[in-house]
Design a protein around this nucleic acid. Structure first.
Lengths: 219, 219
DNA sequence: AACTTTTTTTAGATTTGCCTAAACCTTAAT
DNA sequence: ATTAAGGTTTAGGCAAATCTAAAAAAAGTT
């Protein structure tokens, strides 16, 4: 079956909200989509008719099995395009989200198959988020923010949860990117800042706010 | 200014029809867009309001200066994406039109700029049609179909006007592609067929229909 | 438990792009 | 010049996706 751009956007955003809360509310989705709650209710009915949702009036909603599958497919397309934009076209990763938002709705299955292969089957997008495979499966890496990571360990940056230009500027300044390995030296309890050491460079201290937005994993 | 997918499709198709006839008719456009004449009239009014058309009721219409500029930009996007699909993703050229139809509406200017550079500023799409530059300019190559080309001359294939799978099959069979050079040996008046010689291979005879759809230029 | 606040839904409009059917022009033919 | 035929436009509607305003349900407060 084929879905409209609007339907796909609703599905995708329900999926993303579900990563934080099991069931999603009308208001939060309206907020995410920059639309009005009444519009959300309308679309929910439609998606329920198409059997993509579990939805009870006034009680919130969540994607069912097939809704989830479709969402993962959209996420797959989005992340593959983001990878393409950064890796092949040389975009900075804070610029690609909007463009991928449009590209993700191009419907050809063959296109995505070939794009995946052209990109050499990447596992994560430029922000470190995993790219689901054709069946919606992806490896879940156990990761923690630098703020929570144990001291004295060497870890690898796996993703960043903020994709603003300001964030990019900071990461460039500290020479940190996805895949960079660094050592957590010390957590300062006073302000939550963390001393880290990136590769051969001198140790430096990053703010709590930054530490909370950089996720790392072991080895 | 920004245009809807629908508006862009109208503009593009008016442009294409104008290549054959100076002014376009409601019916022919409706036919091209697989829509109804009444719908075309509706959209014409809208495009006229937006100052992209010269249009007099019952009298046909054509793009004005700015309409033309927009059309050429859409054509540029379409052809760049076609080039990408064939050159980078390995699609056969009879499969790319539909996909490029969707991709061409992605609106980022920066995207197209970078795509162009990534593809190394191609001059023509996979069917040999010229890719307009940012200002809508492109080199016009004087070309004739093999059916009309003078005998005893060596020519270079510059484009094909039919993009069906059947056409592709024939071209592959004769080892003909865009850029292939071949010699026109003889025109048979009886059935319009033409004897040609492709590179080092044995001379062969192609039908009038095929000859009419392959365009060539000198040197 | 009753009232207030917040959230969600319904009802009714609006816009865009499309449709059918009917009216309207233009052209070509007698 | 009239008429027939064809193409074009208007009128009126429909579906998708949105909105505002009002009603209904749930949650929070005293």
């Amino acid at each position: 079956m084929n879905y409209s751009v609007s339907e796909e956007n609703y599905i995708k955003n329900i999926y993303h909200l579900q990563q934080q809360t099991e069931t999603v509310t009308t208001n939060s989705l309206a907020n995410e989509l920059r639309t009005k709650p009444a519009s959300v209710t309308d679309m929910l009915k439609k998606l329920q008719t198409k059997n993509l949702l579990e939805y009870k009036r006034y009680r919130g909603f969540k994607l069912n099995e097939s809704g989830n599958k479709i969402a993962l497919n959209i996420v797959r397309r989005h992340r593959l395009w983001e990878f393409f934009l950064v890796d092949k076209l040389g975009f900075e990763w804070d610029k690609v989200h909007e463009i991928a938002e449009e590209l993700e709705h191009v419907s050809s299955v063959e296109l995505i198959k070939r794009l995946d292969s052209f990109l050499n089957f990447p596992q994560t997008d430029p922000h470190g988020d995993p790219i689901p495979d054709t069946n919606g499966k992806f490896a879940v890496i156990k990761q923690v923010s630098i703020a929570e990571a144990a001291a004295k360990k060497t870890v690898v940056v796996s993703s960043v949860s903020d994709q603003s230009p300001g964030m990019l500027e900071m990461l460039n300044h500290y020479h940190i990117g996805i895949g960079t390995s660094l050592k957590i030296n010390k957590h300062f309890t006073f302000d939550g800042s963390v001393e880290i050491k990136v590769s051969q460079k001198a140790a430096c201290v990053i703010s709590e706010q930054l530490a909370k937005n950089i996720f790392v994993h072991h080895e």
